[in-house]
Design a protein around this nucleic acid. Structure first.
Lengths: 195, 195
DNA sequence: ACCTGAACACCGTTCAAGT
DNA sequence: ACCTGAACACCGTTCAAGT
Protein backbone atom coordinates (compact mmCIF):
# COMPACT_ATOMS: atom_id res chain seq x y z
CA UNK A 1 0.00 0.00 0.00
CA UNK A 2 1.21 3.49 -0.80
CA UNK A 3 2.30 5.82 1.97
CA UNK A 4 1.61 9.52 2.16
CA UNK A 5 2.29 11.36 -1.08
CA UNK A 6 5.36 13.53 -1.06
CA UNK A 7 4.73 17.08 0.03
CA UNK A 8 5.87 18.60 -3.27
CA UNK A 9 3.58 16.24 -5.19
CA UNK A 10 0.63 17.21 -3.08
CA UNK A 11 1.37 20.88 -3.56
CA UNK A 12 1.73 20.51 -7.31
CA UNK A 13 -1.55 18.65 -7.57
CA UNK A 14 -3.33 21.43 -5.75
CA UNK A 15 -1.68 24.17 -7.78
CA UNK A 16 -2.76 22.44 -10.98
CA UNK A 17 -6.34 22.10 -9.80
CA UNK A 18 -6.60 25.71 -8.72
CA UNK A 19 -5.23 26.98 -12.00
CA UNK A 20 -7.30 24.50 -14.01
CA UNK A 21 -10.47 25.84 -12.44
CA UNK A 22 -9.57 29.33 -13.65
CA UNK A 23 -8.42 28.33 -17.14
CA UNK A 24 -11.39 26.04 -17.76
CA UNK A 25 -13.67 28.87 -16.66
CA UNK A 26 -11.95 31.05 -19.26
CA UNK A 27 -11.52 28.64 -22.16
CA UNK A 28 -14.02 25.87 -21.51
CA UNK A 29 -13.55 22.12 -21.12
CA UNK A 30 -11.27 22.06 -24.17
CA UNK A 31 -8.82 24.45 -22.53
CA UNK A 32 -5.13 24.11 -23.38
CA UNK A 33 -3.45 21.69 -20.96
CA UNK A 34 -0.13 23.31 -21.80
CA UNK A 35 -1.51 26.63 -20.71
CA UNK A 36 -2.69 25.16 -17.42
CA UNK A 37 0.74 23.66 -16.74
CA UNK A 38 2.44 26.92 -17.65
CA UNK A 39 0.24 29.05 -15.44
CA UNK A 40 0.56 26.57 -12.59
CA UNK A 41 4.36 26.90 -13.02
CA UNK A 42 4.66 23.18 -13.32
CA UNK A 43 6.32 20.96 -15.92
CA UNK A 44 4.00 19.60 -18.57
CA UNK A 45 4.93 16.08 -17.55
CA UNK A 46 3.88 16.82 -13.99
CA UNK A 47 0.39 17.68 -15.13
CA UNK A 48 0.21 14.40 -17.06
CA UNK A 49 1.55 12.46 -14.09
CA UNK A 50 -1.24 13.71 -11.85
CA UNK A 51 -3.94 13.69 -14.52
CA UNK A 52 -3.12 11.23 -17.31
CA UNK A 53 -6.03 12.38 -19.47
CA UNK A 54 -8.12 15.50 -19.84
CA UNK A 55 -11.06 13.49 -18.52
CA UNK A 56 -9.12 12.73 -15.35
CA UNK A 57 -8.55 16.43 -14.77
CA UNK A 58 -12.18 17.26 -15.45
CA UNK A 59 -13.18 14.51 -13.07
CA UNK A 60 -11.27 16.20 -10.29
CA UNK A 61 -12.93 19.51 -11.16
CA UNK A 62 -16.47 18.23 -11.61
CA UNK A 63 -17.04 15.16 -9.45
CA UNK A 64 -18.05 17.12 -6.38
CA UNK A 65 -20.69 19.03 -8.29
CA UNK A 66 -22.05 15.87 -9.89
CA UNK A 67 -22.26 14.09 -6.58
CA UNK A 68 -23.92 17.07 -4.98
CA UNK A 69 -26.57 17.09 -7.69
CA UNK A 70 -27.11 13.36 -7.27
CA UNK A 71 -27.60 13.84 -3.53
CA UNK A 72 -29.95 16.72 -4.20
CA UNK A 73 -32.07 14.44 -6.36
CA UNK A 74 -32.25 11.89 -3.56
CA UNK A 75 -33.30 14.59 -1.13
CA UNK A 76 -36.00 15.85 -3.45
CA UNK A 77 -37.39 12.36 -3.90
CA UNK A 78 -39.27 12.48 -0.60
CA UNK A 79 -40.41 16.06 -0.64
CA UNK A 80 -43.20 18.02 -2.26
CA UNK A 81 -44.94 17.53 -5.55
CA UNK A 82 -43.15 15.08 -7.84
CA UNK A 83 -43.48 17.52 -10.69
CA UNK A 84 -42.08 20.44 -8.71
CA UNK A 85 -39.28 18.28 -7.36
CA UNK A 86 -38.21 17.33 -10.87
CA UNK A 87 -38.43 20.87 -12.17
CA UNK A 88 -36.46 22.24 -9.25
CA UNK A 89 -33.72 19.69 -9.75
CA UNK A 90 -33.55 20.47 -13.44
CA UNK A 91 -33.24 24.16 -12.71
CA UNK A 92 -30.43 23.40 -10.28
CA UNK A 93 -28.71 21.18 -12.82
CA UNK A 94 -29.07 23.67 -15.65
CA UNK A 95 -27.45 26.33 -13.51
CA UNK A 96 -24.39 24.18 -12.97
CA UNK A 97 -24.31 22.88 -16.53
CA UNK A 98 -23.74 26.39 -17.79
CA UNK A 99 -20.70 26.87 -15.56
CA UNK A 100 -18.12 25.91 -18.18
CA UNK A 101 -18.30 26.23 -21.92
CA UNK A 102 -18.23 22.75 -23.46
CA UNK A 103 -19.50 21.11 -20.31
CA UNK A 104 -22.71 19.86 -21.90
CA UNK A 105 -20.68 18.17 -24.62
CA UNK A 106 -18.27 16.67 -22.11
CA UNK A 107 -21.16 15.18 -20.16
CA UNK A 108 -22.74 13.65 -23.24
CA UNK A 109 -19.39 12.22 -24.31
CA UNK A 110 -18.79 10.85 -20.82
CA UNK A 111 -22.10 9.03 -20.71
CA UNK A 112 -21.19 7.29 -23.95
CA UNK A 113 -17.85 6.05 -22.65
CA UNK A 114 -18.04 3.73 -19.67
CA UNK A 115 -14.26 3.80 -19.39
CA UNK A 116 -14.23 7.54 -18.71
CA UNK A 117 -13.15 8.50 -15.19
CA UNK A 118 -16.15 10.80 -15.09
CA UNK A 119 -18.57 8.06 -16.08
CA UNK A 120 -19.46 6.81 -12.62
CA UNK A 121 -20.42 10.11 -11.06
CA UNK A 122 -22.04 11.52 -14.18
CA UNK A 123 -24.07 8.38 -14.72
CA UNK A 124 -24.98 8.29 -11.06
CA UNK A 125 -26.30 11.82 -11.30
CA UNK A 126 -28.29 10.93 -14.41
CA UNK A 127 -29.74 7.88 -12.69
CA UNK A 128 -30.78 9.90 -9.65
CA UNK A 129 -32.54 12.35 -11.92
CA UNK A 130 -34.16 9.42 -13.68
CA UNK A 131 -35.78 8.35 -10.42
CA UNK A 132 -37.24 11.82 -9.95
CA UNK A 133 -38.58 11.58 -13.48
CA UNK A 134 -40.17 8.20 -12.89
CA UNK A 135 -41.90 9.39 -9.76
CA UNK A 136 -43.41 12.31 -11.63
CA UNK A 137 -44.47 9.95 -14.40
CA UNK A 138 -46.01 7.48 -11.95
CA UNK A 139 -48.43 10.11 -10.70
CA UNK A 140 -49.16 11.30 -14.23
CA UNK A 141 -47.43 14.66 -14.09
CA UNK A 142 -44.99 13.98 -16.91
CA UNK A 143 -45.68 12.12 -20.12
CA UNK A 144 -44.57 8.53 -20.00
CA UNK A 145 -42.80 8.23 -23.33
CA UNK A 146 -39.50 9.68 -22.21
CA UNK A 147 -36.74 8.16 -20.11
CA UNK A 148 -33.89 9.51 -18.05
CA UNK A 149 -31.45 9.37 -20.93
CA UNK A 150 -33.77 11.40 -23.16
CA UNK A 151 -34.36 13.97 -20.48
CA UNK A 152 -30.68 14.36 -19.72
CA UNK A 153 -29.87 14.78 -23.39
CA UNK A 154 -32.60 17.39 -23.76
CA UNK A 155 -31.42 19.50 -20.86
CA UNK A 156 -27.82 19.29 -21.99
CA UNK A 157 -28.88 20.34 -25.47
CA UNK A 158 -30.53 23.42 -24.00
CA UNK A 159 -27.32 24.25 -22.14
CA UNK A 160 -25.37 23.82 -25.36
CA UNK A 161 -27.39 26.58 -27.00
CA UNK A 162 -25.97 29.36 -24.85
CA UNK A 163 -22.66 27.60 -25.18
CA UNK A 164 -22.61 28.29 -28.93
CA UNK A 165 -24.64 31.49 -28.96
CA UNK A 166 -24.09 33.52 -25.80
CA UNK A 167 -26.47 36.10 -27.23
CA UNK A 168 -29.31 33.65 -26.58
CA UNK A 169 -28.56 33.54 -22.87
CA UNK A 170 -31.43 35.92 -22.04
CA UNK A 171 -33.89 33.46 -23.60
CA UNK A 172 -32.35 30.52 -21.83
CA UNK A 173 -34.90 30.25 -19.04
CA UNK A 174 -37.70 30.81 -21.46
CA UNK A 175 -36.63 28.00 -23.76
CA UNK A 176 -36.16 25.83 -20.71
CA UNK A 177 -39.65 26.29 -19.36
CA UNK A 178 -41.04 25.97 -22.86
CA UNK A 179 -39.54 22.51 -23.27
CA UNK A 180 -40.53 21.53 -19.75
CA UNK A 181 -44.10 22.55 -20.55
CA UNK A 182 -43.92 20.11 -23.42
CA UNK A 183 -43.04 17.31 -21.05
CA UNK A 184 -46.13 17.83 -18.94
CA UNK A 185 -48.62 15.04 -19.37
CA UNK A 186 -51.88 16.22 -20.91
CA UNK A 187 -54.20 16.88 -18.01
CA UNK A 188 -57.30 14.74 -17.80
CA UNK A 189 -59.94 17.41 -17.44
CA UNK A 190 -58.03 19.77 -15.20
CA UNK A 191 -57.89 23.50 -15.75
CA UNK A 192 -56.60 24.45 -19.15
CA UNK A 193 -54.10 27.11 -20.04
CA UNK A 194 -56.04 29.55 -22.19
CA UNK A 195 -53.13 31.88 -22.88
CA UNK B 1 -13.35 43.29 -64.39
CA UNK B 2 -11.74 39.89 -64.04
CA UNK B 3 -11.60 37.57 -67.02
CA UNK B 4 -12.14 33.84 -66.99
CA UNK B 5 -10.21 32.08 -64.24
CA UNK B 6 -7.24 30.09 -65.38
CA UNK B 7 -7.99 26.49 -66.20
CA UNK B 8 -5.66 25.08 -63.54
CA UNK B 9 -7.21 27.35 -60.92
CA UNK B 10 -10.67 26.20 -61.83
CA UNK B 11 -9.61 22.55 -61.68
CA UNK B 12 -7.94 23.00 -58.31
CA UNK B 13 -10.99 24.67 -56.87
CA UNK B 14 -13.16 21.79 -57.94
CA UNK B 15 -10.76 19.17 -56.66
CA UNK B 16 -10.68 20.89 -53.27
CA UNK B 17 -14.46 21.01 -53.06
CA UNK B 18 -14.90 17.36 -54.01
CA UNK B 19 -12.36 16.22 -51.46
CA UNK B 20 -13.70 18.61 -48.81
CA UNK B 21 -17.13 17.07 -49.14
CA UNK B 22 -15.67 13.64 -48.36
CA UNK B 23 -13.38 14.77 -45.53
CA UNK B 24 -16.05 16.88 -43.85
CA UNK B 25 -18.41 13.92 -44.07
CA UNK B 26 -15.74 11.85 -42.31
CA UNK B 27 -14.42 14.31 -39.74
CA UNK B 28 -17.14 16.94 -39.40
CA UNK B 29 -17.05 20.70 -39.91
CA UNK B 30 -13.82 20.92 -37.88
CA UNK B 31 -12.01 18.67 -40.33
CA UNK B 32 -8.29 19.23 -40.89
CA UNK B 33 -7.75 21.70 -43.72
CA UNK B 34 -4.26 20.30 -44.17
CA UNK B 35 -5.75 16.88 -44.70
CA UNK B 36 -8.11 18.25 -47.32
CA UNK B 37 -5.26 19.93 -49.20
CA UNK B 38 -3.16 16.77 -48.99
CA UNK B 39 -5.90 14.49 -50.28
CA UNK B 40 -6.77 16.97 -53.02
CA UNK B 41 -3.06 16.83 -54.01
CA UNK B 42 -2.88 20.58 -53.78
CA UNK B 43 -0.52 22.90 -51.96
CA UNK B 44 -1.78 24.17 -48.62
CA UNK B 45 -1.49 27.73 -49.88
CA UNK B 46 -3.71 26.89 -52.83
CA UNK B 47 -6.51 25.86 -50.51
CA UNK B 48 -6.15 29.15 -48.61
CA UNK B 49 -6.10 31.12 -51.84
CA UNK B 50 -9.43 29.67 -52.93
CA UNK B 51 -10.97 29.58 -49.47
CA UNK B 52 -9.34 32.11 -47.15
CA UNK B 53 -11.20 30.83 -44.09
CA UNK B 54 -12.85 27.61 -43.00
CA UNK B 55 -16.17 29.43 -43.15
CA UNK B 56 -15.56 30.25 -46.81
CA UNK B 57 -15.02 26.58 -47.58
CA UNK B 58 -18.13 25.57 -45.64
CA UNK B 59 -20.06 28.23 -47.47
CA UNK B 60 -19.20 26.59 -50.77
CA UNK B 61 -20.25 23.23 -49.37
CA UNK B 62 -23.44 24.30 -47.65
CA UNK B 63 -24.94 27.30 -49.42
CA UNK B 64 -26.90 25.26 -51.93
CA UNK B 65 -28.55 23.24 -49.20
CA UNK B 66 -29.39 26.34 -47.18
CA UNK B 67 -30.89 28.07 -50.19
CA UNK B 68 -32.86 24.97 -51.08
CA UNK B 69 -34.33 24.86 -47.59
CA UNK B 70 -35.17 28.56 -47.75
CA UNK B 71 -36.97 28.00 -51.05
CA UNK B 72 -38.76 25.03 -49.59
CA UNK B 73 -40.06 27.20 -46.79
CA UNK B 74 -41.39 29.70 -49.31
CA UNK B 75 -43.11 26.93 -51.20
CA UNK B 76 -44.71 25.55 -48.07
CA UNK B 77 -46.00 28.98 -47.10
CA UNK B 78 -48.94 28.71 -49.49
CA UNK B 79 -49.83 25.06 -49.05
CA UNK B 80 -51.70 22.97 -46.53
CA UNK B 81 -52.19 23.45 -42.82
CA UNK B 82 -49.79 26.01 -41.35
CA UNK B 83 -48.92 23.59 -38.60
CA UNK B 84 -48.20 20.71 -40.97
CA UNK B 85 -46.21 23.00 -43.25
CA UNK B 86 -43.97 24.04 -40.37
CA UNK B 87 -43.51 20.52 -39.11
CA UNK B 88 -42.67 19.21 -42.55
CA UNK B 89 -40.10 21.93 -43.07
CA UNK B 90 -38.53 21.19 -39.71
CA UNK B 91 -38.32 17.50 -40.55
CA UNK B 92 -36.64 18.39 -43.82
CA UNK B 93 -34.24 20.72 -42.07
CA UNK B 94 -33.41 18.26 -39.32
CA UNK B 95 -32.54 15.65 -41.93
CA UNK B 96 -30.00 17.96 -43.54
CA UNK B 97 -28.70 19.31 -40.25
CA UNK B 98 -27.52 15.84 -39.32
CA UNK B 99 -25.48 15.51 -42.52
CA UNK B 100 -22.18 16.62 -40.99
CA UNK B 101 -20.97 16.34 -37.46
CA UNK B 102 -20.52 19.82 -36.03
CA UNK B 103 -22.95 21.38 -38.48
CA UNK B 104 -25.42 22.46 -35.81
CA UNK B 105 -22.61 24.27 -34.01
CA UNK B 106 -21.39 25.88 -37.21
CA UNK B 107 -24.86 27.20 -37.95
CA UNK B 108 -25.29 28.68 -34.50
CA UNK B 109 -21.84 30.30 -34.71
CA UNK B 110 -22.63 31.65 -38.17
CA UNK B 111 -25.84 33.29 -37.04
CA UNK B 112 -23.92 35.12 -34.34
CA UNK B 113 -21.35 36.51 -36.76
CA UNK B 114 -22.74 38.78 -39.45
CA UNK B 115 -19.33 38.91 -41.09
CA UNK B 116 -19.35 35.17 -41.76
CA UNK B 117 -19.58 34.24 -45.45
CA UNK B 118 -22.29 31.79 -44.46
CA UNK B 119 -24.32 34.40 -42.62
CA UNK B 120 -26.47 35.55 -45.52
CA UNK B 121 -27.76 32.17 -46.66
CA UNK B 122 -28.06 30.74 -43.15
CA UNK B 123 -29.90 33.77 -41.87
CA UNK B 124 -32.08 33.76 -44.97
CA UNK B 125 -33.05 30.19 -44.28
CA UNK B 126 -33.81 30.99 -40.65
CA UNK B 127 -35.94 33.95 -41.70
CA UNK B 128 -37.90 31.85 -44.15
CA UNK B 129 -38.58 29.32 -41.42
CA UNK B 130 -39.59 32.18 -39.16
CA UNK B 131 -42.33 33.15 -41.59
CA UNK B 132 -43.69 29.59 -41.52
CA UNK B 133 -43.66 29.80 -37.75
CA UNK B 134 -45.51 33.09 -37.69
CA UNK B 135 -48.21 31.77 -39.98
CA UNK B 136 -48.77 28.80 -37.68
CA UNK B 137 -48.87 31.13 -34.70
CA UNK B 138 -51.32 33.48 -36.41
CA UNK B 139 -53.90 30.72 -36.71
CA UNK B 140 -53.20 29.54 -33.16
CA UNK B 141 -51.47 26.28 -33.96
CA UNK B 142 -48.21 27.11 -32.22
CA UNK B 143 -47.78 28.96 -28.97
CA UNK B 144 -47.00 32.60 -29.45
CA UNK B 145 -44.15 33.04 -26.99
CA UNK B 146 -41.42 31.75 -29.27
CA UNK B 147 -39.71 33.39 -32.22
CA UNK B 148 -37.75 32.16 -35.20
CA UNK B 149 -34.42 32.46 -33.41
CA UNK B 150 -35.66 30.35 -30.51
CA UNK B 151 -37.07 27.71 -32.82
CA UNK B 152 -33.91 27.50 -34.87
CA UNK B 153 -31.79 27.17 -31.76
CA UNK B 154 -34.05 24.43 -30.44
CA UNK B 155 -33.90 22.35 -33.58
CA UNK B 156 -30.16 22.75 -33.85
CA UNK B 157 -29.81 21.70 -30.24
CA UNK B 158 -31.73 18.52 -31.04
CA UNK B 159 -29.38 17.83 -33.95
CA UNK B 160 -26.43 18.39 -31.67
CA UNK B 161 -27.56 15.56 -29.40
CA UNK B 162 -26.90 12.84 -31.96
CA UNK B 163 -23.78 14.77 -32.85
CA UNK B 164 -22.33 14.11 -29.40
CA UNK B 165 -24.03 10.82 -28.67
CA UNK B 166 -24.57 8.79 -31.83
CA UNK B 167 -26.13 6.11 -29.64
CA UNK B 168 -29.12 8.39 -29.18
CA UNK B 169 -29.81 8.51 -32.90
CA UNK B 170 -32.65 5.96 -32.65
CA UNK B 171 -34.50 8.28 -30.27
CA UNK B 172 -33.85 11.31 -32.42
CA UNK B 173 -37.26 11.41 -34.10
CA UNK B 174 -38.94 10.73 -30.81
CA UNK B 175 -37.24 13.62 -29.08
CA UNK B 176 -38.03 15.78 -32.05
CA UNK B 177 -41.77 15.12 -32.01
CA UNK B 178 -41.80 15.39 -28.26
CA UNK B 179 -40.42 18.92 -28.40
CA UNK B 180 -42.68 19.83 -31.30
CA UNK B 181 -45.63 18.63 -29.24
CA UNK B 182 -44.54 21.08 -26.62
CA UNK B 183 -44.73 23.93 -29.12
CA UNK B 184 -48.34 23.23 -29.95
CA UNK B 185 -50.64 25.89 -28.62
CA UNK B 186 -53.06 24.57 -26.01
CA UNK B 187 -56.24 23.72 -27.89
CA UNK B 188 -59.33 25.68 -26.97
CA UNK B 189 -61.80 22.90 -26.41
CA UNK B 190 -60.68 20.63 -29.21
CA UNK B 191 -60.17 16.89 -28.77
CA UNK B 192 -57.64 16.08 -26.12
CA UNK B 193 -54.83 13.58 -26.21
CA UNK B 194 -55.71 11.09 -23.49
CA UNK B 195 -52.63 8.92 -23.89
C1' DA C 1 -2.15 34.86 -61.94
C1' DC C 2 -1.54 31.13 -59.63
C1' DC C 3 0.93 27.32 -57.16
C1' DT C 4 4.09 25.54 -53.69
C1' DG C 5 5.98 24.28 -49.44
C1' DA C 6 8.91 26.04 -45.81
C1' DA C 7 8.32 28.73 -41.63
C1' DC C 8 6.04 30.13 -37.40
C1' DA C 9 3.37 29.58 -33.43
C1' DC C 10 0.61 26.76 -31.42
C1' DC C 11 -1.41 21.89 -29.82
C1' DG C 12 -1.45 16.87 -27.16
C1' DT C 13 1.41 13.19 -25.67
C1' DT C 14 5.57 10.59 -24.44
C1' DC C 15 9.79 9.76 -22.27
C1' DA C 16 14.92 10.03 -21.18
C1' DA C 17 17.36 12.52 -17.93
C1' DG C 18 17.66 14.46 -13.75
C1' DT C 19 16.93 15.18 -8.28
C1' DA D 1 9.09 8.99 -6.15
C1' DC D 2 8.60 12.73 -8.50
C1' DC D 3 9.79 16.66 -11.65
C1' DT D 4 11.37 18.61 -16.02
C1' DG D 5 11.49 19.94 -20.68
C1' DA D 6 13.02 18.32 -25.12
C1' DA D 7 11.14 15.56 -28.83
C1' DC D 8 7.55 13.98 -31.96
C1' DA D 9 3.61 14.33 -34.67
C1' DC D 10 0.15 16.97 -35.50
C1' DC D 11 -2.59 21.70 -36.21
C1' DG D 12 -3.91 26.68 -38.64
C1' DT D 13 -2.00 30.50 -41.02
C1' DT D 14 1.28 33.33 -43.65
C1' DC D 15 4.38 34.36 -47.20
C1' DA D 16 8.76 34.37 -50.10
C1' DA D 17 10.00 32.02 -54.01
C1' DG D 18 8.88 29.99 -58.03
C1' DT D 19 6.27 29.16 -62.89
Amino acid sequence: MAGEPRADARRNRERILMVARVVVAEQGTEASLRDIARRAEVGLGTLYRHFPTREALLEALLRQGFDRLAARAEALADAGSPREALLEWLRDFAGGAGAYRGLAGSMMATLNDEASPLYASCHGMQAAAGRLLERAQAVGHIRGDIDGTDLFALVNALSWITDQAPSLAPRRDHLFSLVMDGLAAPERGGTKRLT
